[in-house]
């Protein structure tokens, strides 16, 4: 399977935060969700994919090319959406198009007009007077109008109401239909991903915890609930993280068979949601 984006051993250090040894592959033709808590390193990773930040060590390749020699060729094929508005806020959408369109060789005016109509966007209104949802739609219309093969989005659903979020996800599904497109987007709203993502990459405290297909994740992880008396030094080994409550314990495991062998019928094993995994992983790194 061809990789559209490949991060190899990428490290970026800041004064009080770092992203360390990230190995991440984004496969062509799939929707990739990128999850992690606030401040886990999602935006930093995305910025390195876009060459807004250069890694201190490691390699970033997009479409098999590196930014040093092929910056323009790479960006020509990427559509981007950021969580805030990056367009000149005082300008009308019409003027923003006049600025952005000539940058791309494959800009498609007819396609842009089609999206403007579909999203009901006003051309003669300043971007700053758009609602958050409309700004997002405007970014998306621009990102989709130059036949980009890779759409990179940083928190596109943040601050949007549930109805609009669902509309957006439907739209993303629609643009995936032709099979050649790849979407990589970060979010901390995990329910968005259950609907459309094929792969999930999870970053925690600057480290990539996993990058697996949604199918593998639901198979590999499970939530285990039982009485606290069942836990001792040996049985605890089966868990990534344990949350002790007065009513019993709730724990995340990466090894469902081991848990079944150890505890048998004395515990309840449930499918872990992405949110369960995020919650326990974040705690797990601290305590166990």
């Amino acid at each position: 399977m061809e990789n559209v984006v490949e991060l190899t051993n990428v490290t970026k250090e800041f004064k009080d935060f770092s992203v360390k040894n990230i190995d991440l592959q984004v496969k062509r033709g799939f929707v990739h969700g990128f999850i992690g808590a606030n401040g886990a390193g999602k935006s930093t990773t995305i910025k390195m994919m876009m060459n807004l930040l250069q890694p201190d060590a490691g390699e970033v390749k997009v479409f098999g090319m590196d930014y040093k020699t092929h910056e323009k060729a790479i960006k020509e094929r990427i559509g981007f959406v950021y969580d805030g508005n990056v367009f000149y806020e005082g300008l009308h959408l019409k003027d923003i198009k006049r600025i952005v369109a000539p940058a791309y060789k494959h800009w498609d005016n007819a396609l842009f007009s089609q999206y403007v109509e579909q999203f009901e966007l006003p051309l003669n209104k300043a971007i700053k007077n758009f609602s958050k949802g409309m700004q997002m739609k405007a970014s998306l219309a621009i990102a989709l109008s130059h036949h980009a093969e890779l759409i990179i989005m940083d928190e596109p659903t943040a601050g949007l109401d549930p109805i609009f979020r669902r509309e957006l996800l439907g739209l993303l599904q629609e643009i995936m239909l032709d099979g050649s497109r790849t979407i990589f987007f970060s979010t901390h709203i995990t329910t968005d991903l259950n609907r459309i993502a094929d792969y999930i990459a999870f970053i925690n405290r600057g480290k990539l915890v996993f990058n697996n297909s949604i199918h593998d994740i639901t198979e590999n992880y499970a939530l285990v609930k039982g009485r606290t008396e069942l836990l001792d030094r040996d049985t605890e080994k089966a868990f990534v993280h344990i949350n002790r409550l007065s009513t019993g314990f709730e724990a995340l495991t990466e090894n469902v068979t081991a848990v079944e062998n150890t505890f048998g019928d004395s515990v309840v094993i449930e499918q872990a949601t992405l949110e369960d995994i995020m919650f326990h992983m974040k705690g797990g790194m601290q305590h166990v």
Binding site: K72, F80, N85
Partner: peptide
């Protein structure tokens, strides 16, 4: 004055320009 804004730099650097 337009160009010193972070958003402008993010936009320009995300477009196919070096």
């Amino acid at each position: 004055a337009n160009d010193e804004k972070a958003e402008t730099n993010i936009l320009l650097n995300s477009l196919p320009y070096t």
